[in-house]
């Protein structure tokens, strides 16, 4: 059956592939998602992002960087639960429509990891910036007391200097503007390093995800 007009299956591909791909991700958000009725004693951290957050391509969901963060929180005996709000292929525009659904649950810390897919698709930086700002605004208006974290991203140099620099600069700009804690580059130490990335060269391996978690933890632990 697979050798039917493959081209005809293109749609299925296009819907799923684009940018970050999707195929398989962890299923660990389930338990966490059920923590909607989280008590005051247990606070929620929402990591809102794309395939990097969702843990695309990893064998086990517990290998994604939000899961690694959870173990760090647990070992620090902090009363926080991480909600994995990662969705493969998500763009800033997609995040904008999706955020309300996730904000139905109480949020104490909001971690924003979006924009990578915009960058890979060459979406104008201004457009991405606006979308991210809207998302931040929504969080702010619903949970004014929530602490905000911005995870910075970069696009590969082959995209062209202007775009690369505009894109890179957008994150510190937004963080400063919204008084957010900034992780300058989520993929610091992993991006471009063959061994730490999966075959596609984009998504970190389990080992890479640990470094990602460290990068975030550096800044996050101060807030908890």
């Amino acid at each position: 059956m697979l050798n039917k007009f493959r081209i005809l299956a293109v749609l299925a591909l296009t819907i799923t592939v684009a940018g970050c791909g999707s195929q398989s991700t962890s299923n660990d958000t389930s338990e966490k998602a059920e923590t909607k009725e989280a008590t005051a004693a247990n606070k929620n951290i929402l990591v809102f992002g794309d395939s990097l957050t969702a843990g695309y391509g990893l064998d086990d969901a517990s290998e994604s960087y939000p899961s690694v963060l959870q173990t760090k929180i647990d070992s620090a005996k902090l009363p926080y639960t991480i909600i994995n709000g990662g969705l493969s292929g998500e763009t800033s525009a997609g995040g904008k429509s999706r955020i309300d659904w996730l904000l139905k649950q109480h949020i104490d810390v909001f971690v924003l990891e979006l924009g990578a897919n915009d960058g890979l698709r060459g979406i104008p930086v201004k457009e991405t910036e606006q979308n991210l700002q809207t998302i931040i605004d929504r969080v702010k208006s619903k949970y004014p007391n929530a602490k905000l974290v911005m995870l910075g991203m970069q696009v590969p140099p082959n995209m062209g200097d202007d775009y690369v620099s505009d894109f890179r600069d957008m994150f510190p700009k937004l963080a400063a503007k919204n008084n957010m804690t900034l992780v300058p580059f989520l993929l610091q130490g992993v991006g471009g390093v063959r061994a730490l990335n999966q075959k596609d060269g984009i998504h970190p391996t389990a080992e890479g995800a640990k470094i990602l978690a460290n990068n975030v933890w550096q800044e996050l632990k101060g807030l908890l």
Partner: peptide, 18 residues
């Protein structure tokens, strides 16, 4: 590779596959 290419006449940029 994908890259943002600049069209000098129309002064606009677009993602292309180089």
């Amino acid at each position: 590779f994908p890259s943002m290419v600049y069209f000098t006449k129309s002064q606009s940029t677009r993602l292309v596959q180089v």
